[in-house]
């Protein structure tokens, strides 16, 4: 996927000046629909923003597997348990694909992992909320993955080759996550009174985080314009939120479930959804560390690294003879 894109983490990137000619040639290549590859010249800001974005995406995959992973042991029924394990394995695999894509820009996977665990890097805010019941895990698998797919499909048309290739594989794999999540939600929503109450409560709990998911409105940002021109960002946060609402609110209402926003309706004149702005102060507070699960997510990740160190050391031991399972 990233053939001939190996980057030595100690390598210093060419400090070639950013002349207007170089930037114009770079822009022309993007405008012509060409992909940028790791060896190509790129503006420092392009590199920096992509590292930040792909790294955060990778962290979101790895942290996102935690609230769902919690439910593996308690998934109702063997088939759902198998499917959930497969989904969680996929998410961790997606993190690996993304770390590899980000590495082609010059930041090592180990540095990214360290920045995640020490809290220097962010991940999707939505994973700082707990999956209280099985229905929460169903809503996550359906709607958080749906939101991620809206985002990822848009970004897979972006300009950076390694990221696009990773996203294509990810979107392909996540289509099962979405179906699996929908299946679980439908099962509960068409089930007993208790099951319906459970899934309604989960839907109500997750609505605000889902509205937060695409981020605050960014249509007025100059920064955003540059990123869109470089095809680092493919659509505004508002556009992606609208697309998500358009695709999924009808499906939620179709099940007789309600959403906790009295203003929610499609505006016939504008063709857009009217809604109450979610509490963006809460969003800022949670993303900066003060959410219900921030501390737990990072502590669990740290424990996994600490407890896994001996495995890394063992497989790295050149003298060892019996470290090569092929299961």
């Amino acid at each position: 996927m990233y053939g001939n894109a190996y980057i030595d983490p100690n390598e210093k990137f060419s400090s070639e000046e950013e002349t207007p000619e170089l930037v114009a040639a770079f822009q022309a290549r993007i405008d012509a629909g060409e992909k940028i590859e790791p060896q190509d010249w790129m503006p420092a800001m392009y590199r920096k923003q992509l590292i930040r974005m792909i790294e955060q995406h990778a962290h979101s995959e790895i942290i996102g597997s935690l609230p769902e992973g919690t439910w593996i042991t308690r998934a109702p029924g063997f088939r759902r348990k198998l499917a959930l394990m497969a989904k969680v394995q996929d998410e961790v695999g997606h993190a690996q694909l993304l770390y590899s894509a980000a590495e082609t820009l010059g930041k090592s996977r180990e540095d990214m992992m360290n920045d995640l665990i020490t809290g220097k890097s962010k991940y999707s805010n939505i994973f700082n909320y707990p999956a209280l019941t099985w229905a929460d895990s169903a809503v996550i698998a359906w709607l958080v993955d749906a939101g991620a797919i809206v985002n990822q499909l848009a970004n897979s048309k972006g300009s950076y080759g390694p990221y696009c290739r990773a996203l294509e594989r990810i979107c392909y794999e996540e289509s099962f996550h979405l179906k699996y999540g929908h299946d679980n939600v439908v099962h509960l929503a068409t089930g007993t009174k208790k099951q319906r109450e459970m899934v309604q409560a989960a839907m109500t709990r997750w609505w605000t985080p889902l509205m937060h998911f695409f981020g605050p409105s960014d249509k007025a940002s100059v920064h955003s314009d540059t990123l869109m021109r470089w095809k680092v960002k493919m659509a505004s946060n508002d556009a992606m939120r609208q697309q998500f609402m358009d695709m999924y609110i009808p499906k939620i209402w179709d099940l007789g479930l309600t959403l906790p926003d009295p203003l929610l309706k499609k505006n016939i004149e504008t063709g857009l959804w009217d809604y109450t702005e979610p509490d963006w102060e809460e969003f800022k507070r949670v993303i900066n560390g003060d959410g219900p699960c921030n501390a737990e997510r990072l502590a669990v990740r740290r424990m996994a690294e600490e407890n896994g160190k001996w495995v890394a050391r063992a497989i790295n031991n050149e003298e060892a003879e019996h470290v090569r399972p092929f299961a």
């Binding site: 983490p9 919690t70 090592s108 360290n114 020490t118 737990e296 990072l298 160190k309 790295n316």
Partner: peptide
């Protein structure tokens, strides 16, 4: 945690120290 396995691990939050010994394969 809601996950009994995590509660049993007696983890603490708020540790922002750098990880050391991460192997770069």
């Amino acid at each position: 945690s809601l996950d009994p396995r995590i509660s049993r691990a007696h983890l603490s939050g708020g540790n922002h120290e750098d990880m050391t010994g991460l192997l770069h394969f």
